[in-house]
């Protein structure tokens, strides 16, 4: 009996048909493809997009030029210089160079940042393509660019 059933199974290609049934179910099943760029998948809260500097609600930069991010960085992305603001006695960055091409998106700089809320954070921006290599090097003003302005910067728009 066992032999007969095995012969029948082999003869009628049961194993192959079973496999084809699975493939057909996927063919008529729910589609999981996302039509980028019309649809964009929402990014999770801790998504590691491009690093950006942030300002507080009054429009003042949060960065205090303590260089903790530079010390934490394993790939030497940062070059920072700060001066003491004579009025408020706090340090402010005058030079904040960051190299996107060296960045490994490990997040050590964000963890090291001592300000609250953190001055340097990952944004949700994942589009970082550019045809000009010099656009991978950011200066202080470029570090605040976001959205369309950032894309303009990547595409070689006026360097602010």
């Amino acid at each position: 009996m066992n032999k007969v059933s095995r012969f029948l199974k082999t003869f009628f290609l049961v194993d192959i048909l079973r496999g084809l049934a699975v493939t057909m179910r996927f063919y008529f099943g729910r589609k999981i493809t996302i039509q980028y760029p019309e649809e964009v998948q929402p990014s999770p809260e801790r998504f590691k997009g491009i690093l950006r500097l942030y300002k507080d609600e009054n429009g003042k930069p949060l960065c205090i030029a303590c260089k903790a991010c530079r010390r934490a960085c394993g790939t030497n992305c940062f070059d920072i210089e700060g001066v003491r603001d004579p009025g408020t006695r706090t340090m402010r960055p005058v030079k904040y160079d960051w190299k996107l091409d060296r960045c490994t998106f490990c997040g050590l700089c964000v963890e090291a940042c001592p300000t609250t809320p953190k001055s340097i954070r990952f944004s949700e921006e994942f589009r970082m393509a550019t045809a000009d290599k010099s656009r991978l090097h950011f200066h202080l003003e470029d570090m605040y660019l976001k959205g369309k302005d950032l894309q303009k910067f990547f595409q070689g728009g006026s360097k602010t």
Binding site: E45, R46, F47, C106, G107
Partner: peptide, 28 residues
């Protein structure tokens, strides 16, 4: 087809890692 199925299933777990630490492949 198994390549496609396997990668689709793997995506669920990469999503978990992405939600947890922000990275899909190089998670840290």
């Amino acid at each position: 087809s198994v390549l496609l199925f396997g990668f689709e299933d793997r995506e669920d777990f990469l999503d978990i890692l992405e939600i947890y630490a922000g990275g899909r492949l190089t998670v840290h």
